[in-house]
Design a protein around this nucleic acid. Structure first.
Length: 259
DNA sequence: ATGTCGCATTCCATGCGA
């Protein structure tokens, strides 16, 4: 079972790249973020023709998350609980068959939070607290669970090309990393860090200032595994070559193989 | 290098979010 996550930065503009990825890499499950379209504009037919079922939580202009699976998808939750006034489309959860049981998966687009000191940063931290509260509930299922997505968090200095320069950014502030650590401390495994200690395992390079060419990247896309998923982890791959394609997203997919 | 994208609108130029 291959499960992948990719911040696609406009699913409509990136459709040819997405179809190529599905064809070449053939993940069983793919979580997408930053669709930047409403449900009705989602290219469902083309993706279904490629052999995938789709669950979509879209929004006009910004945000938007989806889950694609070769198997049937049963929606578990649309939107993160804990704030009825939060209208951002940043969370979608579903189950899909896995072996004799099911895999539970969430597609997560965590708020950016910049600039620090504004309501945007407060929203990010509150959103992370809500995620942690919900994740704690999900662990009670005691099933393979993957919280996959763009966390907009670099967990440690080796995940940033310039940790000193980024110290006061919302993606790297101590409060942000503290919330991310709380998620891990509930019992979730950062899949990439379970297979390597190597620094510079980036998943994002800014479009600006030749960031890709200079390898000025960030590791902000993560697969967080419940104990039952972590026990079945075989490998993790960052599909870095996707950043060198024509009209790329600024993020690349990350995927894990579960036995 | 105020350096690039994608989306939206007052729509071909500008603002917003990242």
């Amino acid at each position: 079972m291959i499960i992948a996550s990719w911040n696609i930065n406009s699913v409509r503009l990136r459709l040819p790249l997405l179809l190529g990825y599905l064809r070449e890499t053939s993940p069983d499950v793919l979580c997408l973020q930053e669709l930047k379209c409403e449900d009705a504009q989602f290219p469902r037919m083309e993706i279904e023709d490629a052999g995938y079922n789709c669950l979509v939580h879209g929004q006009k202009s910004w945000n938007g998350v989806a889950i694609l699976s070769k198997g049937p998808l049963e929606e578990a939750r649309r939107g993160l609980p804990g704030d009825e006034n939060d209208a951002h489309a940043r969370y979608l959860e579903a189950t899909t068959p896995f072996g004799a049981g099911v895999l539970r998966v969430a597609s997560i687009y965590l708020p950016n939070g910049n600039p620090v000191g504004t309501e945007k940063f407060a929203y990010k931290l509150a959103w992370m607290a809500r995620l942690n509260a919900h994740a704690r509930q999900l662990l009670a299922w005691e099933e393979p669970l993957v919280l996959a997505g763009d966390y907009n968090v670099m967990p440690a200095p080796e995940d940033v090309y310039d940790p000193v320069g980024w110290a006061d950014d919302a993606l790297f502030r101590l409060e942000t990393r503290e919330q991310f650590r709380s998620l891990a401390n509930l019992g979730f495994t950062d899949a990439l860090r379970a297979v390597t200690d190597a620094p510079k395992q980036y998943t994002f390079w800014d479009y600006q200032a030749l960031a890709w060419q200079k390898n000025k990247g960030l590791r902000i896309d993560h697969l967080m595994l419940s104990p039952q998923a972590a026990d079945r982890l075989k490998s993790v791959t960052i599909d870095k070559a996707m950043r060198a394609k024509e009209k790329p997203s600024d993020h690349v997919p990350i995927r894990a193989e579960l036995a």
